[in-house]
């Protein structure tokens, strides 16, 4: 993993967050209490002289970690901002896979409509595997939240947006260029508070946070931010992999099946 120049990353992110606030009529930010979205909020404070000048949304599926709920309350009080909590449900007749995937977008859609948000700040990074490598700093979503990646607008120079249909919205990605290790180095540099789940207890810690249902712990003794940085410097594990090396073949098979090869 490459450790990039934090100053450059910071400047770009501040620019994008300012654009999001000043270009659109009604922007909001998603917060999951994770390290990335919390870093985004820290950058927002830098961009707006200590304030967070837009609503912060938490889509809660009600089975998140207790530490995450505690952290939500702690930081919103410390940094003096309000959180709009949208409650997504685990439906009794849900077909298919994980609880998080199906219901959260529905809840978010409701909130976007209710509050009339036309832009949403989302803290994804390009180094997170797969489809995210194709995202742009600002990308449009139509009213059904679909993203036509083949018709991506020309993101020329520093003008990141494009005209969208009236019912859609623009997704803003200020952390696109950041690596996992850059996030932690910045957290260390700025003394940004983080969810305690990231730190090791009894030989395990969480590297990336979802809800209690889908998140898998990793073997680790990293108890401080410094430890985590050191750990990341040598690890080759993909952030979102709960898959062991044995399961890699199965994973590849699955993908090929989805493509119609097998």
């Amino acid at each position: 993993m490459i450790a990039q120049d934090l100053k450059t990353l910071e400047e770009r992110s501040i620019y994008i967050i300012r654009e999001a606030k000043l270009k659109f009529k009604n922007v909001a930010a998603l917060w999951s209490m994770g390290k990335d979205s919390t870093t985004m909020l820290a950058l927002t404070r830098k961009a707006f002289l200590g304030k967070i000048p837009f609503p912060v949304i938490h889509i809660d599926n009600s089975i998140d970690f207790p530490e995450t709920y505690a952290f939500r309350e702690y930081l919103s009080k410390k940094w003096n901002f309000k959180v709009i909590v949208g409650h997504s449900e685990i439906k009794p007749d849900l077909v298919g896979s994980a609880c998080c995937g199906k219901n959260k977008p529905e809840t978010l859609k409701k909130i976007m409509k209710e509050y009339g948000f036309d832009a949403l700040i989302v803290s994804i990074r390009r180094d997170e595997h797969g489809i995210r490598a194709k995202e742009r700093y600002m990308s449009p979503r139509d009213k059904d939240f679909r993203w036509e990646y083949k018709n991506q607008p020309a993101e020329l120079w520093d003008d990141y947006s494009s005209k969208l249909d009236a019912k859609g919205h623009i997704r803003v990605h200020p952390l696109l260029d950041w690596n996992e290790i850059d996030i932690w180095r910045y957290i260390k540099q700025e003394h940004i508070p983080v969810n305690p789940l990231y730190f090791s207890r009894n030989g395990f810690r969480y590297r990336s946070l979802g809800c209690t249902h889908c998140t898998v712990a990793l073997k680790s003794d990293a108890k401080t931010v410094d430890d985590i940085i050191k750990e990341l410097e040598v690890t080759k594990q993909e952030e979102r992999s709960g898959r062991s090396m044995d399961k890699e073949r199965e994973y590849v098979m699955q993908r090929l099946r989805a493509l119609g090869y097998m």
Binding site: M1, I2, A3, Q4, D5, T8, I181, E233, V234, K236
Partner: peptide, 10 residues
């Protein structure tokens, strides 16, 4: 892969 050093991204 070597431990990561600070790198200039071009």
């Amino acid at each position: 892969m070597a431990t990561c050093d600070r790198m200039l991204v071009k």
